[in-house]
Amino acid sequence: MPVHTTATRQEWLAARLALLKAEKELTRRSDELARQRQDLPWVRIDKAYRFDTDEGPASLADLFAGRSQLIVYHFMFGPDWSAGCPSCSAIADGFDGVRVHLANHDVTLTAVSRAPLAKLKAYKQRLGWSFPWASSGDSDFNFDFNVSFTEQQQGEGIDYNYERDSHAMDMQPVPPPVAELAASCGTDAPAYSRDRPGISTFVLEDGVVYHAYSTYARGVDGIWGMYQWLDRAPKGRNEAGIWWRRRDEYGRSRSAA
């Protein structure tokens, strides 16, 4: 027998209509938040960032690929790691489908990481991705946009997501999930925690690049496709600990992954 509440169709419909009202309120609020994001002032970027890309050395303006808007996903992949973050990898599994539509709406989607380009290309081939992915290893880009931190910053306390971070990644002793994720990337927890996820957006007008918006931590949840589906599944997220893996690791033991 089900342990969840059961009901008649009429009782279900009454409960569903009540929930629909709350869903509509959330949708309207989400629309208003989107408008407020668009109303944020832009900040001119004069610093000359350099990236390594499949097409060769590139500036931030080059990453726009001829379009006027750029969305950067800050993918956690440190210079010395052997693999990218599993969480970022799960998010990136949705990039190739959506980027085609964005490109035809004057928006370029790209990932940026500190790992060398050769590592990014090998990892992208492993997981069957084709979206653009630039290495920022030789620039301050990740540090300036608050997704990478030095050991000194880590020791003093990291300002992440616009406040002094109290994220699980900085807790002592290290939480088992953080240690598990770090090990899966071929690194330790402190090194793993010096890179963080985020999204930054930029606009190009009259040859000038402006920073428009950045979000971090739970602010990235909205583009994590599998969770949008799970939030609508009968049992929701129904998770305990780190259950997801890179797409080619399901069916393998944790020790073999």
Results as ranks from 00 to 15, higher is better:
65 A>C: 12
151 E>W: 07
138 D>Q: 06
84 G>A: 11
234 P>W: 10
179 A>E: 15
114 R>C: 10
80 D>G: 02
154 Q>M: 06
42 W>L: 12
73 Y>C: 09
242 I>H: 15
69 Q>L: 05
30 S>E: 15
155 G>W: 00
132 P>C: 04
248 D>Q: 13
195 D>G: 02
172 Q>D: 06
225 G>Y: 10
85 C>H: 10
101 H>N: 07
228 Q>V: 00
93 D>A: 13
228 Q>M: 04
60 L>W: 08
192 Y>K: 03
102 L>H: 03
215 T>A: 12
28 R>S: 10
81 W>V: 05
170 D>A: 02
32 E>G: 02
187 T>P: 10
191 A>Q: 06
61 A>K: 14
125 Q>M: 05
84 G>P: 15
101 H>Y: 03
226 M>A: 03
120 L>G: 13
100 V>N: 04
23 E>C: 08
132 P>R: 04
148 S>N: 03
213 Y>T: 01
204 L>M: 11
20 L>P: 04
77 F>L: 08
75 F>I: 05
213 Y>V: 00
155 G>T: 00
57 P>F: 02
22 A>C: 07
153 Q>C: 05
48 A>N: 09
158 I>W: 07
228 Q>H: 03
235 K>S: 10
66 G>Y: 09
32 E>M: 09
128 G>L: 13
82 S>T: 12
159 D>P: 11
7 A>L: 07
127 L>P: 14
181 L>I: 09
59 S>L: 14
59 S>I: 00
192 Y>R: 07
210 Y>E: 04
111 A>F: 13
248 D>M: 15
240 A>S: 11
202 F>H: 06
142 N>E: 05
210 Y>W: 03
141 F>I: 01
59 S>F: 04
235 K>R: 14
76 M>R: 15
65 A>E: 12
85 C>Q: 09
43 V>H: 14
